[in-house]
């Protein structure tokens, strides 16, 4: 039939990989990795150089501003189980608090977002407030949280929730608001009504915005958490923020800087997880290639 003129014949479907899937112009894997890695390495080297120059200038005494060498030596020292505090317990406690607080925010924020997007009176009542809450710096909540919960983990969790829930709820609200009507109509005609409308059309369509909300929610949770650990020091629970505070108080600059590097790396790991998730979703939907970003 004439269709075979306009499109590739489909009577003998190609087996395995499509030819030409990767053109000859595509750079090799090694070059790709190199292109991705060298700017990062260069950035780290530049930071280290500035740090070293600053240190060598004798700007501040050692106990206030340690050298890169001392800091990394210290980092190695505590990471291998030495040092005045239990480093790994601290990492574990902090990360667990973050993950637990975030998961709780995820459940509450998702439920709240769905409720607000579906129920007009609720949207009128608290829709604007959710957006408003997002602008509240999480540290503002601490005095209140400490008054209510005392110097306890509960105060930290509270601040995490107040930071993350609005972002997560807003992500799902805007995701649902922006579901293309064409998909809703198509889903309706396919028989996706009631809860199946959500399961098969609305939630998947809103997913990219939801993931963006989760990512932002995590960032707020992480910030609130570290701020909380610095303010709400619970001596019997070692945690990164607490140790950070102690290092500053005791004038252990190398400890302080080592901990900051750890916190930075943990934050980068988390953001890598979220951006990988977002990129996978975008790639699957064909939202790559000719886009606004370079």
């Amino acid at each position: 039939m004439s269709a075979d003129v306009t499109e590739r014949p489909t009577t003998t479907p190609p087996v395995g990989k499509e030819p030409g899937a990767r053109s000859a112009a595509t750079p090799s894997r090694g070059k790709e990795v190199f292109d991705a890695v060298w700017p990062k390495v260069a950035a780290v080297v530049i930071v280290l150089i500035i740090w070293q120059v600053l240190y060598s200038s004798g700007w501040k005494p050692d106990y206030r501003f340690a050298s890169p060498a001392d800091t990394f030596e210290r980092l190695w020292f505590v990471a291998t189980g030495n040092g005045p505090f239990n480093f790994w317990m601290g990492v574990q406690n902090t990360v667990m608090r973050g993950v637990q607080g975030f998961l709780l925010s995820l459940v509450i924020g998702t439920a709240l977002g769905i409720a607000v997007s579906q129920w007009k009176p609720l949207r009128n009542a608290i829709g604007a407030m959710i957006t408003g809450l997002q602008t509240m710096p999480s540290i503002v909540w601490f005095p209140f949280a400490i008054l209510i919960f005392g110097l306890d983990s509960a105060a930290i969790y509270f601040v995490i929730l107040m930071g993350a829930i609005p972002s997560i709820a807003n992500g799902i609200i805007s995701g649902i608001d922006d579901v293309p009507p064409a998909y809703l109509r198509a889903g309706h005609m396919l028989g996706a009504r009631g809860w199946r409308r959500y399961r098969y059309v609305v939630i998947p369509a809103a997913l990219p915005s939801y993931v963006a909300g989760l990512s932002q929610g995590w960032a707020f949770a992480w910030r609130g958490l570290l701020a909380g650990e610095i303010i709400v020091s619970i001596p019997e629970v070692p945690a990164l923020g607490t140790q950070l505070n102690q290092a500053a108080t005791n004038g252990q600059s190398s400890n302080l800087l080592a901990l900051m590097i750890v916190i930075l790396v943990l934050g980068m790991l988390a953001s890598f997880v979220f951006s990988s998730l977002a990129n996978t979703i975008r790639a699957r939907r064909g939202l790559t290639g000719f886009t606004a970003s370079r």
């Binding site: 064409a182 998909y183 109509r185 198509a186 889903g187 005609m189 059309v201 998947p204 369509a205 939907r285």
Partner: peptide, 15 residues
Amino acid sequence: RIAFMFQEATLFPWL
């Protein structure tokens, strides 16, 4: 039973 075919294919991009 009614089915609808739209001008845009409206195949769901997440599937």
